[in-house]
Design a protein around this nucleic acid. Structure first.
Lengths: 255, 255
DNA sequence: CCCAATTTGTTCGTATGTATA
DNA sequence: TTATACATACGAACAAATTGG
């Protein structure tokens, strides 16, 4: 059935990707490379779809599929009528994506952060492993106390590789006017796009209990978080102690 | 510019959806309605894309966009070369989507479930609110003890509306050969497609502590979960107490 | 084992709708 | 108003996986 008409077959509609699956996946990789190379900077608009399609030698539909995935992974943000932008760590975005504590009534509020300790030290075994560093590699370690609705609820113990954060100090952490990840992004060129967390219940250590004004050994959430950049490099390991008397940790799995 | 040629305008390429936005969203709603009405049953294949496109009077591309969203919401499952299927609650799928406890080494294992209590009772205030029931509505309440690698790690207190689960009893829960949600699906026609959870740290209540063989008041995770069906009806409220000495609760936010 | 039919996955190109500046 | 950008829709062709003869 369906007679073939060779005269109409002037060129192939499909050219197999040279290596590794669909074209849109390859284009996605090339866009990630351009982002990692700093060709498109946080907050800037990337070129319009027709231009990018021409640059990569593909159709707009295929380009959109690549962008769709990058938007789904929080690397890009689309705005109809304006353009497509490289994601930045604004307060709203941080609250939406990376701050995972809500009140019992379901409301999420922005935390007031106070730096209570900062030191240059060496990575303990777990930190070195999570940050993929050599044992006892130099790191900056600092502790924040977070207030929600005026109440001290969270203590964050944060560790970052000294190598990647040359010049970080208590002053810069205190003086920042935006989020911590915004400082990482604009101060050190490290864009956090993904985090992985695990949660346990523990008894409050004495020093944390004192800060949170709860009895030692009272139950707290202990959240361990590793933050990754575009290239999947781990750049921060964070242990968060959370008093869940008035707040909790939400999740919608399977979505 | 661009001379109009009325003879070529035989039909519009785009027909606005009668109510509420894009066509593919409307098609998605109609597919959800067909699923809720039981036209396509769990495990069955839905009609092939060309047939569905014809049925809804749209192009294949638009139909695929509707199916894309339903796949993203775990309602349908696509398999290249075979078809598109209504999701079922197999063990693997349950483990992947709805079981959120892993060992400290990151491995997820299937739990051994033992029913330790079953009763018909009335909803307490919180349960009634979460299940959108009248105060003190009749419910079935049961408790499971879950073993991982031979160790008792989790106690689940589960409540379901009696109205939706006529005939449920300890025997049916014990005799099931598949997951609990599989029983809900095939025994009562209730397909869980989404859950919402919140996590707190609490001291172990005496009865739970006895089951888990830990001291009373030792720190446990308390996970509250509401399970929703296709129509967004809440059908199960579950309180899970988890001993995180050897296991934990994982999450990848912002994904 | 291979072939053909079926089904989803990918790509192309075009036209039109909608939001923004 | 006009131009630009992303969003939606259509239709066609081919690729890849599966199934059954």
């Amino acid at each position: 059935m369906m007679p073939m008409d060779d005269a109409q077959i002037d060129r192939p509609h499909f050219i197999a990707a040279p290596s590794g699956g669909p074209i849109f996946k390859e284009v996605k990789r090339r866009m990630l490379a351009a982002l990692a190379a700093g060709e498109w900077k946080p907050g800037e608009a990337i070129p319009a779809e027709p231009r990018l399609a021409e640059r990569f030698g593909i159709s707009i539909g295929t380009l959109r599929k690549a962008i769709d995935e990058l938007v789904g992974e929080n690397v890009l943000v689309r705005q109809q009528g304006r353009g497509t932008f490289v994601a930045t760590h604004s307060r709203d975005r941080m609250l939406f994506l990376f701050f995972n504590i809500i009140r019992h009534d379901g409301v999420k509020v922005y935390p007031d952060v106070a730096l209570v300790d900062f030191r240059k030290t060496r990575a303990d075994d777990e930190t070195a492993e999570r940050l993929r560093l050599a044992p006892r590699a130099p790191v900056f370690a600092y502790r924040n106390a977070l207030r929600l609705d005026g109440r001290l609820v969270i203590v964050d113990d944060i560790t970052v590789p000294a190598e990647l954060f040359a010049g970080l100090g208590a002053a810069r952490l205190r003086q920042r006017t935006n989020t911590i990840y915004h400082l990482y992004q604009y101060g050190f060129g490290l864009s956090v796009v993904r985090t992985a967390e695990t949660v346990r219940a523990v008894g409050a250590p004495a020093d944390v209990a004192r800060l949170l004004e709860v009895p030692t050994d009272s139950p707290l959430l202990l959240i361990r978080r590793v933050a990754f950049t575009l290239n999947d490099r781990p750049v921060e390991f964070r242990r968060s102690y959370v008093n869940t008397a008035h707040h909790e940790y939400p999740r919608e799995p399977g979505y």
